[in-house]
Design a protein around this nucleic acid. Structure first.
Lengths: 196, 196
DNA sequence: AAAAACGATTAACAAAAGATAATTACCGTT
DNA sequence: AACGGTAATTATCTTTTGTTAATCGTTTTT
């Protein structure tokens, strides 16, 4: 949720920003509600959308040559989701991005943001901050793959985000961890057994 | 190498930038040469260094509880390396960053860059560009872990960077791919056998 | 030159993961 | 309540990886 708390947090974080400024950014954002299974970004799409997840769960996935769905990432409340293929690599999206449950988004066109930011350098600190947040999240993800085993990755996710894990169907969770659903099921029974 | 070609490339990429501006950034950079095995960033270090690799190879690693060296990333020519713990997470570096072969760096203090960029908004586009490059590299890395098997990751690295693979000792390469050296050796013999 | 140190490969076994299929459990629909 | 669809679990077998140790080759040290 975008609460008053959070608003004052951002204003404190970026001293050069006024309330007016902040509302200027928010005016670019359109609220959009998605039902479970509804698609936000289609495969091959070229528009550069980016969204703040107010509530709900989004999933970014593709089909490999064998026709299996592979989940690249799952995005929950208070995180950003977007067509990274468009924005980072300037290419049509290889991925589908869709809602896993009823989800509320604040959607912005990245091009419009770019234009606004070009005109108003006072936003630069904010953009930089969000980019760093994103970069941090992705770096942590790489670390988890290099430093942890699948079981350790699962344990860590349960510890860090217990409420999120409960809401993600196992088959998507498995793909997120880089294993098959069967293997995740085994990891779960293994952990349950070790606790007894 | 930072050639005239590359210079004109950057100037074309950032129309608002003058040659003077570019030299202002470069004046912040000190050239530093490291021998193989020499340390660039120590564990626990708090300074926020960032460096452009002109030539050579850098390795970022840590020791797990079992005392094994785990390689998080390897950085080759024309890429950036730095203390991402300091810069992204504002915490002491958990990692050691050292040279794997004689390496030439252009070293900058990130704080100094921040100050310069705060004074000269015309650099903003450049900083943003480099951040996007970095983000793109990390995102690709995550994709490789979710979408590919260890063998496929190795094959891809050999295809994409054959000259780099040849220069990296197998035990570090293995860790980079998220497997053990023994497993990498098996992958190699498997591939060699399949080619016959 | 001999010894020591190190890295890569191979072997042997245990553990984990992939693949496939069967079973079970859970939902929503009719 | 019965049915169908889907997801999760379990079973079975195969493949791959981890672990440990032995071997071989290369380099470094003495």
């Amino acid at each position: 949720m975008l609460t008053a708390d959070k608003l004052s947090f951002y204003l404190k974080l970026f001293p050069s920003l006024t309330v007016d400024d902040l509302f200027k950014v928010l005016s670019l954002a359109k609220e959009r509600h998605l039902e479970a299974g509804e698609v936000f970004i289609r495969e091959g799409e070229m528009g550069s959308k980016i969204a703040y997840v107010k509530s709900g769960l989004m999933r970014t996935w593709l089909c490999n040559e064998q026709g299996e769905e592979l989940t690249l990432s799952i995005t929950w409340e208070d995180l950003f989701v977007g067509s990274h293929d468009n924005i980072i690599f300037k290419q049509p999206s290889r991925f589908v991005c869709e809602a896993m449950e009823p989800t509320s988004l604040l959607v912005m066109e990245y091009d419009a943001i770019e234009t606004l930011f070009a005109k108003h350098p006072e936003f630069e600190a904010m953009r930089h901050y969000f980019l760093m947040e994103l970069l941090g999240a992705v770096v942590k993800r790489v670390e988890s793959f290099v430093l942890l085993s699948p079981e350790e990755r699962y344990r860590k996710l349960v510890t860090d985000r217990p409420h999120v894990v409960q809401r993600i169907p196992g088959k998507y969770l498995a793909s997120l961890l880089g294993v098959t659903p069967v293997s995740l099921s085994r990891i779960r029974t293994r952990i349950a057994r070790s606790k007894r």
